[in-house]
Structures are given as C-alpha cells and as structure tokens.
C-alpha cells in the first residue's frame, strides 16, 4: 500500500458530520457564562479610586503638623528682634594681633 492509496482511502471516509448550526451560539453562550459581568472594570476602577482618595486624605491628616497660633503670638513674633539681644561671643578673629 503506497502513499497515494492511503490518501485515497482516507479521502473516501465521509464519516465526519457537519458542525451543528448553532455551534457559534453555543460557544458564545459559554463565553458569556465564563466572563465576569459587564461593567466590572468600571466598578473596579471606581473602588480603586475611592480607596486611593481615602488613603491620601488620611495620610495628609496624619502628616499635618502645623500649629495654630493666635494673633498675639504672630504680632509678638513679627515685632520681636532678638538680633540685638543675642549675646554672642566675639568672634575669634576680632582683636587678633595676628591680622
């Protein structure tokens, strides 16, 4: 039995039946069944954004170390001049005979 005879023998076999007419519909149905519901990505995105906003806000609250001060304290701060009150030692080079 040569190759051509084998090919001819296989060609004569017509036992393969046609595909069912609704094959694509059946596949599509299974695909729909196995897929997550539509709009889940939008819901997921919205949830992620909400969580991100909450986390950022919470972090801002935790890191806000500003202290509220009164008007009097501000006035005092502005008008105070500690420069002349400072009792810094004279610098080492003042009065030096070396210079």
């Amino acid at each position: 039995m040569d190759d051509k005879e084998i090919v001819d023998l296989l060609k004569r076999d017509e036992s393969l039946k046609d595909a069912p007419r609704n094959e694509w519909a059946a596949i599509k149905y299974k695909i729909d069944q196995s897929s997550p519901p539509k709009g889940w990505k939008i819901a997921l995105l919205a949830c992620s954004m909400a969580i991100a906003i909450i986390l950022v806000r919470q972090q801002n609250e935790n890191t806000n170390t500003n202290v509220t001060i009164t008007d009097e304290e501000i006035y005092e701060y502005i008008t105070s001049d500690s420069y002349f009150d400072s009792a810094d030692d004279t610098y080492a080079w003042i009065g030096s005979t070396q210079l």
Binding site: L16, E23, K30
Partner: peptide, 27 residues
C-alpha cells in the same frame, strides 16, 4: 478555522465527542 479544527479533532478521536471538544477548544 472551524472546519479545520473540527476535522483535526475528529480524525484524532473518531467519535461523536467532537462537538464538545470543538466548543471547549474555542472557549
């Protein structure tokens, strides 16, 4: 590709299960 896939599977299994396997393949 459906005809090729169907024939490929059928010639391997030679049984009526081909319909299920074609669907499983595309899924």
């Amino acid at each position: 590709t459906k005809d090729f896939v169907r024939a490929s599977i059928y010639w391997m299994i030679r049984s009526h299960h081909v319909d299920d396997l074609v669907q499983e393949t595309y899924l």
